[in-house]
């Protein structure tokens, strides 16, 4: 039976993990500062983090929080863990930053370090590198969080030999930054903090709306 074993939700400078608020910054704090404070709170030693765009940082931080509550990474083959993300804006936040770097012909310095983040699936790539996860990838773009899409696609991955999925919604957009990441596994994992909720639309909708 495939289950949701942990989830993390970042919204309004607040991190909720499995229904409990675990970290919070003042609402006046910018998304950049909030993400840096979260990074410090997690005591992550990962200098690459500072090079990422907001979307990647949101995904890295939310996943890091969710993973602490499960043994997903140690109890599954890393080649059989899939990452499936979705959002509405694709990489628009960074697209605009890149467009700005080329719109003034007298100050024309296209930056490769910005351009590389103008693809939404770089978020998946950064997470894969962070945890050495080499399984299936997909980045879907839809108008709003779509539990049916994510659940159905997770199920199809399980039919194709995947053992665990890191999935969710990651959106970097001014005043609307959000990450909702859930972990799902085909086998029970041994971490006592893991939750075991059925992997279905009703449950996922509930967990998303809870916070």
């Amino acid at each position: 039976m495939n289950a949701i074993t942990s989830y993390a939700h970042i919204k309004h400078n607040t991190v909720t993990v499995n229904g409990t608020v675990v970290f919070k910054s003042a609402s006046s704090v910018s998304i950049h500062e909030f993400l840096l404070e979260s990074y410090k709170f997690l005591a992550m030693n990962y200098p690459k983090f500072h090079k990422m765009d907001v979307q990647c940082k949101l995904a890295i931080i939310a996943t890091e929080f969710a993973l602490r509550e499960t043994a997903l990474l140690t109890e599954n083959d890393l080649a059989k863990i899939a990452i499936v993300f979705s959002n509405h804006a694709s990489s628009l936040d960074t697209d605009k930053a890149y467009q700005n770097s080329i719109s003034d012909k007298s100050n024309y310095f296209p930056s490769p370090a910005i351009f590389v983040y103008t693809l939404p699936n770089i978020t998946i790539g950064e997470l894969a590198i962070r945890h050495k996860i080499t399984g299936e990838n997909a980045f879907f773009v839809c108008e709003k969080f779509d539990p049916a899409l994510l659940i159905n696609y997770c199920e199809s991955l399980y039919l194709n030999g995947i053992d665990a999925v890191i999935a969710g919604w990651v959106e970097a957009e001014t005043n609307n930054d959000e990450a909702f990441i859930f972990l799902s596994e085909s086998q029970r994992n041994t971490n006592k903090n893991a939750i075991f909720k059925p992997l279905n639309q009703t449950t996922l909708t509930e967990l998303y709306n809870l916070t």
Partner: peptide, 9 residues
């Protein structure tokens, strides 16, 4: 099938 190198972006 798809897979990630988990190596470099």
């Amino acid at each position: 099938a798809s897979a990630n190198d988990a190596n470099h972006i």
